[in-house]
Design a protein around this nucleic acid. Structure first.
Length: 429
RNA sequence: GUGGUCGUAGCUCAACGGCAGAGCUCUCGGUUGUGGUCCGAGCGGUUGUGGGUUCGAAUCCCAUCGACCACCCCA
């Protein structure tokens, strides 16, 4: 009979992938360290839906931002609800803050979350359409100390993960009071030099002037370095706030770089913004985390004016780096013994013995489904356990078990009800 | 979304118009119920997919999907 192709071979959608067992220890480490640290810093965990009203992101993240205007996944339903997969975490958490009346609790409210975000963009190394973020948000308090604390958390987390070559860049974008004036100054400056700009910058001049400062084109660099900086156009309040943030960071001895060209892609940021990069020789720095203050988001979403600050970590990239930098992570379970079973009777007794050992706190590895003793011994050897416990037909009849010292090869037969004691005695030596 | 490079076994790669291979991994053996080394065998592929050229295609051409890189942007 000719072979027919009955089913197509499926593959994961573009830019999406499986997180495999061999990487699980790295993911667990980032998430556990992040979670524990966040709790130590007084953050509480929140989980919000992966899908929200699309309007939440259009109004929150911003209609003109790339992640909303070009990269959002819209969700079709039988009804005509206008839903979208979340491209970032902040709007959902802000919505939850409002919807659940957290504004009437003692402020500030400090929340953390982690989970997948979805952005339909062209994938590349470290750039996924389903990406994982760990994020923090602090609502209800505009103090500069909280901006600093957020950065302190970030610094602390990277240190604890063993990633040392991180580089924190910081800037202030001002607020609705002072930003328009800065924008005008920037536009004025660039308009006079329009002819010397690269094609991309000519486009940016029209569409997104702040992005002019991001240009990497050689010919634009001299113009860029002379460009007006937002920090020179801050209103009194914003300048004082920024100064305080920097003073706190100095006090904490957290190294940072003032980067007047730092601009973030989301519309809601006010005052402090920062990004954390990984510096690698010969490669352009990669953003690992970013955040800032967003004092107008809640108001823009229809809530009462509520200052806030937050940040997000790109877990995919952090895990990649941990692997590359060979950060030590917990190994799998530390098996102490290996249960080798032979024959039907031996297998039955072994199942029971496994439970007994577990109750006694002795982690036992096994491969119950295998028949050959050879293969089982091989597994035992590979796991590096100290003892193999062999239970075959004969031992099942006698209610005994053989304890084999894997290093010396010495074997001793002991009664099954003494095994735990015998093992404990041997582990003490 | 635009441009470039690349897709062969689970992994790393050969074969570059003439029978699709190796190493590693995995499974099973090397006399009764005992691991590491060694030896042997086996499993595993419609060469990403679909067309075309050709006596003959993994190899050449087109399309498509995916990965990587650059732009764009960001985590």
């Amino acid at each position: 009979m000719p072979k027919k192709k009955l089913q197509k071979e499926f593959q994961s959608p573009k830019g999406m992938r499986d997180l495999l067992p061999q990487d699980a220890a790295f993911w667990d480490k980032v998430i556990n360290v992040g979670q524990e640290l966040a709790q130590d810093y007084g953050f509480q965990k929140i989980e919000t839906p992966l899908i929200e009203d699309a309007e939440l992101f259009i109004r929150g993240t911003g209609e003109t931002t790339d992640i909303v205007s070009k990269q959002m996944y819209f969700v079709k339903t039988a009804g005509n609800a206008n839903l979208a997969l979340r491209p970032e975490g902040t709007p959902g958490v802000a919505r939850a803050y409002m919807e659940n009346g957290m504004a009437s609790l003692a402020q500030p409210i400090k929340l953390f979350y982690y989970g997948p975000m979805f952005r339909h963009e062209q994938p590349q190394a470290g750039r996924w359409r389903q990406l994982y973020q760990f994020g923090l948000e602090i609502f209800g308090d505009g103090s500069a100390v909280l901006d600093a604390q957020t950065i302190q958390f970030c610094f602390h987390l990277f240190r604890q993960l063993g990633l040392k070559k991180v580089n924190i860049q910081i800037n202030s974008l001002g607020c609705p009071q002072c930003r328009p004036a800065y924008r005008r100054a920037l536009l004025d400056y660039y308009r006079h030099r329009k002819e010397k700009l690269c094609p991309d910058c000519k486009r940016r001049l029209k569409e997104n002037p702040l992005r002019l400062l991001d240009c990497k084109e050689e010919k634009c660099q001299p113009i860029k370095t002379q460009a007006p900086a937002s920090v020179d156009h801050l209103c009194d309040d914003c300048r004082k706030h920024f100064k305080e943030v920097l003073e706190f960071l100095d006090e904490l001895e957290i190294p940072y770089f003032l980067n007047s060209a730092l601009v973030r892609g989301l519309d809601y940021y006010t005052k402090t913004i920062f990004e954390v990069f990984w510096d690698e020789e010969g490669a352009s720095p990669m953003a690992l985390a970013g955040g800032g203050r967003y004092d107008n988001l809640i108001k823009d979403l229809g809530g009462k004016p509520t200052p806030a600050v937050g940040m997000a970590f790109g877990l995919d990239r952090i895990v990649d780096l941990m692997k590359k930098e060979q950060v030590k992570v917990a190994q799998g379970p530390n098996f102490k013994v290996f249960l080798v079973q032979l024959g039907a009777a031996g297998r039955k007794k072994c199942l029971k013995l496994f439970e007994k050992l577990h109750q006694a706190g002795i982690l036992a590895a096994e491969s119950m489904s295998r028949d050959s003793i050879k293969a089982q011994m091989k597994s035992a050897d590979r796991l590096g356990v100290k003892f193999a416990l062999i239970l075959g037909q004969q031992e099942a009849l006698d209610n005994t078990v053989i304890i084999r010292d894997m290093q010396s090869g010495v074997q001793e037969t002991v009664p099954q009800d003494k095994v735990v004691d015998e093992l404990k005695k041997r582990f003490k030596k």
